[in-house]
Design a protein around this nucleic acid. Structure first.
Length: 288
DNA sequence: CTCTATGTTTAATT
DNA sequence: GAATTAAACATAGA
């Protein structure tokens, strides 16, 4: 269930569950989720440590321990953390568990569930490259319009692809990018470097709207069990909620995208020069 | 059986 | 080299 709002909910949930407590037991039998570490590394490094802080950047979760070491958790496509009774046996999708005891003596058990195992857990003494390379987080850092516009200027790839680039903005996935561009009334295939300042402003507003909306639906339900109502994501073939014309489906950067050809305008680069023709031509790469 | 899926990385192709 | 595409990963559900 992973995109920024989901991971934010997971962060709050994990913080409430683990924050300030001491790890009494940790284990995993899964070779894949803990790569590159052997499953035994979990128990070896975590037992006895106290959880100092749980934080999030983009789609990554970070649990900082009292000795400064960290557990990084990426939920992949189907990952989730959920509390279980300490004595409850592992279910089919459980890939790891971390048991703790609070300062008041309350014992609890956090289970990492992930049927597809695209998610991963990484143990490290310090921050890892996957974390430090992330761009600004829309919730924690806000969205810097000038910086976003500058990032768009540097590439002609589709604007939707730029939005999903975790080094441009951390936490935007296929759902948020699709929804935000619909709010902004911009065709997701538009070249990034064709967008004007006001287009970027519209996208920033669209992102805020989409993030806020998804966060709200999640806050109103049990962690990990929200029922989303999207405007256009997954709705190709259905009518556009804004103008009723049929939403179409295209693939951008390998990801399914739904949008309205009628109200989402395709931006184009300004025409190089007037007609003329023949010779000329090899450039238009003026932008470097 | 077929197709699709909220993510990321890596190989292949243009 | 840069940019674009496809495949791979593993599993569940329609």
């Amino acid at each position: 269930m992973p995109e920024l709002p989901d991971v934010e909910i997971a962060k709050r949930y994990l913080d409430e569950l683990l924050g300030g407590s001491t790890i009494t037991r940790a284990e995993s039998k899964d070779q894949r989720v803990l790569r590159p570490h052997p499953p035994s590394a979990l128990a070896r490094t975590l037992a006895g440590r106290t959880v100092r802080e749980v934080s999030r950047r983009g789609k990554w979760l970070r649990v900082v321990l009292d000795d400064g070491s960290r557990i990084f958790s990426h939920l992949g496509m189907t990952g989730w953390w959920e509390e279980r009774e300490v004595d409850q046996p592992a279910e089919r999708s459980e890939r790891a568990r971390i048991d703790v005891v609070s300062p008041e003596g309350r014992a609890r058990s956090a289970r990492y569930l992930d049927s597809r195992r695209f998610g991963r857990l990484i143990l490290s003494q310090g921050d890892i490259a996957e974390w430090t390379a992330l761009g600004p987080d829309p919730l924690a850092d806000g969205i810097d319009m000038a910086a976003l516009a500058a990032a768009f200027t540097r590439t002609r790839r589709a604007v939707k692809e730029s939005l999903m680039d975790q080094s441009v903005l951390a936490g935007i996935g296929n759902i948020l990018a699709t929804e935000a561009l619909w709010h902004a009334k911009i065709d997701p295939r538009s070249p990034s470097n064709a967008l004007s300042r006001s287009d970027v402003a519209a996208i920033v507003r669209g992102l805020r709207t989409a993030i806020r909306r998804e966060l709200k639906t999640r806050e109103a339900s049990e962690p990990g069990h929200a029922h989303d109502i999207f405007s256009v994501y997954g709705r190709a073939g259905e009518p556009c909620p804004r103008d009723g014309s049929t939403l179409v489906r295209v693939v951008i950067a390998g990801r399914t995208t739904a949008f309205c050809k009628h109200c989402q305008v395709r931006k184009r680069r300004a025409k190089p020069r007037a007609s003329r023709s023949r010779a000329a031509s090899p450039e238009r790469l003026a932008s470097r």
